[in-house]
Computed example of a mutant assay.
Amino acid sequence: MDEVLIVGGGIGGLATALAVLRAGKRPVVLERVSEQAVVGSGLSLWPNAIRALDALGVGAEVRARAVTDASGGIRDSAGRLLLGVDAAALQERFGEPIVVHRAELMAILRGALPDGVLRTGIRVTAADESGRVVTTAGERDAELVVGADGIRSVVRRAVAGEVEPRYAGYTAWRTVVAPPEPVTEFGESWGRGQRFGFAPLAGGRVYCFATANAPAGAPDGGLAELGERFAGWHAPIPMLLAAADPAAVLRHDIYDLPALPRFTAGRIALIGDAAHAMTPDLGQGACQALEDAVTLGAILAGDGDLRRYDAARRPRTQRIVARARRMGRAGQLSARPLVALRNAAMRRTPASAQLGAMASMLDWTPEESATIAL
């Protein structure tokens, strides 16, 4: 038996299918929705993720549809710089970060798979350590079951039992707009309990995202609420909101996962949000899922010992989850004295210190996946 059953057809699941193919195994991806919607959001891909895409054979195609991230750093609501980013130094040290539309990355990953690998409209209802899964299309057995089914993962129950995601204390809006004037700089602005960010995409589009402190499940005021919250913020934020389509604004409360005791059990391995869902504050969610895929593929091409996957991925991703959560808490501070202290500390942070702090995330290479010691 050489079938690897991948539950979930998102970025992590599709990337894992490519990695499994390269390992000489036969992937089958089960996706519960019959037709995946075009999600109106952008995606930051840091150099570690781009190396993973190169290892999967699709890096060049992704770069061709992306825009290089020339970050303008973090500003306050009036546009005053709080923390600058030396884009040239970042690129020289780690490589070039990019931004791509999520739907375009998904299309590239799907297009790289042979016909028949992706099976849609099939929902997995249970899995166990033996490699057996129960689906709406019947039961099946596999050499390996990969749980790539997100933060509310069904497969995870067989590895870690019932795990309740943690609400981060804030909600987020996302949309893609076509502004009347070009936007070439990337930026994120922090206020009191809310943030707004924007990133150019190919074709003159701009990905916009915003956050605000709110109880879980609070009513969604949509674009009108965004207009009220960010009225008076610096350019180009008003222009971007004015260009937005109310029907294209997505809102999701932000959750992450507590640290799991393990990522593998028997013939099951967890990847992406099923294993280590994190807040979006470091832009590493999809990046870590891509690393997971490459690492698992390298192990399957070798001795297949899933303990190596757990040893390689669990400590690293759980550190990043914790770091993202801390960053989110800092960004969502709302008390005036604490915001003033935060802003003052950011202004005093040298660019060199910022690059040094990023090293542990961005230095990852696919070669590490093949040299994992237990």
Rank of each mutant, 00 (worst) to 15 (best):
G331V: 02
L250S: 14
L338M: 14
I268A: 04
D310Y: 02
R342N: 08
A289E: 01
L250F: 14
E291D: 01
T317P: 03
Y309W: 07
I320F: 08
A247F: 03
I271C: 10
A301Y: 07
R314K: 08
D305P: 00
L300K: 02
L306H: 06
D281C: 07
I268N: 00
A293E: 01
R326V: 13
R319P: 05
L306A: 10
F263V: 02
R308T: 03
M278F: 04
L290G: 09
P337N: 06
A259F: 00
A293W: 05
A269K: 01
V321L: 13
R267V: 08
H252M: 11
L250G: 06
E291Q: 10
D253G: 08
R323T: 15
D273V: 14
A324Q: 09
I299R: 00
G285M: 04
R342W: 11
A301G: 15
A247G: 10
P350R: 05
P337H: 06
G328P: 03
V339K: 00
D273A: 12
R342M: 11
A340L: 15
D310H: 04
L296P: 04
A247P: 03
T279H: 02
R325H: 15
G272M: 06
V249H: 05
G272C: 09
R313Q: 11
R319M: 14
A247W: 05
N343C: 11
R313G: 09
D303Q: 06
L300N: 01
D303I: 12
A286D: 00
A275W: 05
Q284D: 00
G297R: 04
R347K: 14
Y255H: 14
Y255M: 01
G283E: 00
D310L: 04
L290K: 03
G328E: 03
H252Q: 13
D256H: 12
G272K: 06
I268Y: 01
P337Y: 09
L290E: 03
V294I: 14
E291W: 03
G297T: 11
V294D: 09
A293I: 07
L257E: 00
A274N: 04
L296N: 10
L296D: 08
R323V: 12
T295S: 05
L341M: 15
N343F: 10
Q332K: 01
D310V: 07
R325D: 13
Q284H: 02
L290V: 12
D273T: 13
G302Q: 13
A322E: 14
R316L: 13
A312Q: 10
Y255F: 15
C287Q: 01
C287L: 02
G272H: 06
A353L: 15
V249I: 13
D281M: 05
Y255V: 05
A269I: 08
D281N: 15
R326T: 13
R342I: 12
H252L: 11
L300P: 04
R348Y: 07
T264I: 14
I271R: 03
S352T: 15
R325I: 10
L260H: 01
Q318P: 05
A312L: 07
R313D: 09
C287V: 11
D281F: 15
V339R: 00
R267D: 01
M278G: 04
R262D: 05
I254R: 00
G272D: 02
R325A: 15
G328H: 03
G304H: 04
V339A: 02
L306K: 03
G285S: 05
P337K: 02
S334Y: 06
R329N: 01
I254E: 00
G272Q: 08
I271G: 08
